[in-house]
Write a protein that binds this DNA or RNA. Sequence first.
RNA 1: GCGCUCGUAGCUCAAUUGGAUAGAGCGUCGGACUACGAAUCCGAAGGUUGCAGGUUCGACUCCUGCCGGGCGCACCA
Length: 660
Amino acid sequence: MISIEAELRRRCALAIGKAFGAEHAPSAVVKAGDPKFGDYQCNSAMALARALGQPPRTVAARIIEHLNLDSLCEPPTITGPGFINFKLHVVFIGQRLEAIASQSASLARAGVPPASHRQTVVVDYAGPNIAKEMHVGHLRSCVIGDAISRILEFQTHAVIRQNHVGDFGTQFGMLIRYAQEVQLQTGAFPPIEDLDTYYRQAAQRDREDAQFALEARHAVVALQAGEPQAVALWRNIHHESRRHAEQIFQLLGVKLTPQDERGESFYAPRLPGIVLQIAEALAVGGDGSDTALGGADTPSRLKELAVSPPDDRAEAAGALASPQALDRLTDAQLPPVIHKPLTCISDGAMCLFLPGYVDKDKQPLPLIIQKADGAYLYATTDLAALYFRIVEDKLTPNDQKPLNENWHADRVIYTTDSRQAQHFAMVFDAACAMRWHVHPQTGQRVDLVHASFGSILGADGKPFKTRSGESVKLRALLAEAMDRAAAVVAEKNPSLSADKQRQIATAVGIGAVKYADLKQDRTGDYEFVWERILSFDGNTGPYLQYAYTRICSIFRKAGDVENSQARLELVESAELNLARHLLKFPDAVEIAARDLKPHYICTYLYELCGLFSAFYENCPVLKAANPATVKSRLILCRVTQAVLKVGLNELLGIPVLEEM
RNA sequence: GCGCUCGUAGCUCAAUUGGAUAGAGCGUCGGACUACGAAUCCGAAGGUUGCAGGUUCGACUCCUGCCGGGCGCACCA
């Protein structure tokens, strides 16, 4: 069964097709703007009126003539300029809810249907830098990326989470060199309790000591060449960092595991092949075919760099190009305006020029895929990752963490902050230029999405920092959330055991922080204010968790009164309003998945709790007049509980509690 | 300078992407506990959606131009 909104849209499209021809078929069905207009409305008549040269209300009437609604709705009405209003039939509502409540399996899905077209979706999020402690800057990526993953996963898409860690940059030379130094002096590897301190000390040595800095550069080379001692130290740092990140993920309830981690170091061996591939395919003056220009200046240094380090894995990564192709890559041939993607060497760096990008001086802006010194950049790694996720065959021994099947992603989603918008636009354009955005099996266009988000600001509207201007550590932020929640629990519910209180404080504190982040449209900035986040009033995590505990409390008191064969009687307006809204949960999930915006689910759940409160105030459940009403109302409680659990817990990754 | 983005009630945010009378919470004011959890609920006041044009049956939403904030613009990620 698909969502009701989708079902009505389908039926309206069918009716429009029958009435006016299939070319007019797409139908605009949305939730009604106002309850007095029913549950849903079709807005297609007004749009069609012009094209058909008929009055919109006439068009609406003809749509209705061809509309088959079965017993879904009451007879539709035409209002205003030509809106078609649908009001769900009470009998239909009752049957649907009874069906959902009747089995634990259907309750577990809360009415949400599986996706009609199952896709393989890669979601790239979190991506912390190794050797630095995670800070608030990572919060949104973790929370939003995980929610998006959970939502798509719940729709039964095959979601592949990817943690693209920064673990192979130049900073590692510094860190390795510093680790060597400390080890030599103390005879023991320093415990990395505070990664930031460690990093800062290394950076300070790097700044102050030219000899140290030089050796740090050499350490990078040693690391990339696989020198055992450098690699061992790198592994050590890596291990410590991962341990730290794991703790954060676990505390946050983010479902990333070590198996999901493929960072810069993973892609490093593939980069030479990627650069070669792009350089040849898009060589300036060439058309990608084998027509090397004779006599052009040979950028021999780059040719050397592009094929080093000598690693046969580059070939496996798809290095189709021959080094000879690089012979024609001189910037002398670069046109002043870029009309098609071109690669060439500019100032010694391997550049990919894409149409539509210019710098401050209106000069073509390149996507640099290899620096003049031969090093690769994050654009290179991102392109390698895209190739890996979409094109590459995974059943090769090259993947250190092989899956059982090929990925060939249908969709790749990046959850990073909006400042990287241009970077991803360029990377996506580059992938398109290489035709890597075409699914190797289906030939369909792969959806490349930057699900960007804004910044977290302090109460003053400026970037969220500590008083001394440092970035707030994520661990400290979450600890404060739990402390604040613990204080409230101790005050409100002192009778609970200390252990129980701690458990509740964790769920409430972490949940509040996550919910505050998810409830707002991710594209905007938001202000982080403890009082607002941890409030029990309004659209907050604690408020929703509280609503859930009230329902649980009813069931604790109900004992075995519940009867799965009970019938739903919808009499009171509070009952009807709640019932109607419960059936719209699949619609909320669908639009949240469509736009990759978890806040649609938050808004839906908040409205649900408001309607449940009205029901709770006006319709006694356990003290209802007769047993049949008690059972009927317990069905509403049961489905509300299920929707809250699925929405909060499974889709948003926020814990629910039996009591608090 | 170019590009992206945002501007909605005193404050923090919504508005299913062009739909009907722009909705919530906080704060303010006024109410409801002998009550399935008052960590809650109900009511009131609060708006020329930054400004000015345009597009059309219909605009917070789209197009143009201003004003104001944020961010980005060649070898960091």
